[in-house]
Amino acid sequence: MRRIGVLRRPGLVLRLAVPLLLGGGWELAVRLSGVPHWILPGPLAVGRALVEGLPVLLPALAVTLAVTLGALVVAAAGGILLALAIALSPLLEAALLPLAVTLQVIPLVAVAPVILLYVERVETALVLCAALVAFFPVLAGTLSGLERAGTAERRLFALYHASRWQELVHLRLPTALPHLLAGLRVGGTLALVGAVVAEFAAGHAGSRAGLAFRILEAGWRLDIPRMYAALVLLAASGLVLHALLRGIERAVLRRFHLAPREGS
C-alpha cells in the first residue's frame, strides 16, 4: 500500500531519485577515473570534509546568516516603506523610483568595494551590501501589489469618502500582502547570495570569518573537499531559508484568508 502511495506521487520520487542518481554517478566517476581528491572530490569525501570541518564551518555559517538576516530586515523595512511613500505620492515616485532601479542594475560585486571604502564597520557594510540586492524584489513586489486593488473596491471606498491613507491601510496594503510576501521570499534568498558576494569583496568579515572567507581560505590551502563542503552548507541554508520564508508566507496568507482556494 505504501509503495503504491509513493508511486502515485512521481514528483516526490523524482525529487529523491535525481540527487541520488547524480551523487551516485559522481562518486562512481571519481572512483573509476581515479581523479585525485584535490582536483575533484567525490560526494563521500565531501561529506567527510563537511563533518570534520563543522567546528570551523558552522560558526562561519552563523556569521553569514547573521548578515543575511540583518540584510533581509533592512531590505524589508526599506522596500516596504519606499513602496508606501511612492504609492502615496506621484512626486516621490518620480524622484525615487529611477534611483532605486539604478541601484538595482549595478552589480553588487562592483558596488561592494565602494561601500566597504566608506563604511567603517565591516559588518555594517556587509549588511548594507546584501540589503542592496534583497531590497529590490521587496520594493517591486509591494509596489505592484499596491496597484492590485479592484475598481469596484475603490468605488466602495470613494463612496464613503475614504482618505488616501484609509484606502492605503484598509484596502491597498492588504491587497498587496501576497505580492509583498513573494517579494520578501525572493529577497531572502538574494540576501544570502548578497552576503556571500559581499564577504568575497571584503575578503574577510571583520573580526569573525563568514562562509565565503572559509571557501577562499580552503582554496588557498588547496583543501578542495572543504570548499565543496562549504558550498553544500551554503546551498542547504539557502534551501532552508527559502522553505522558512515560504512557510511564513503561507501561514500569513491563510491567516488573512488570502491563500488561493484549494484545487485552483
Binding site: E153, F256, L258
Partner: peptide, 19 residues
Amino acid sequence: VLLPWLDVWHNVALPLRLL
C-alpha cells in the same frame, strides 16, 4: 465586493469605520 481578509462583522462595519 467583500474584503477577503475581513470577517463578516468587519466587512459590514467597514463604512462606519471609514466614516
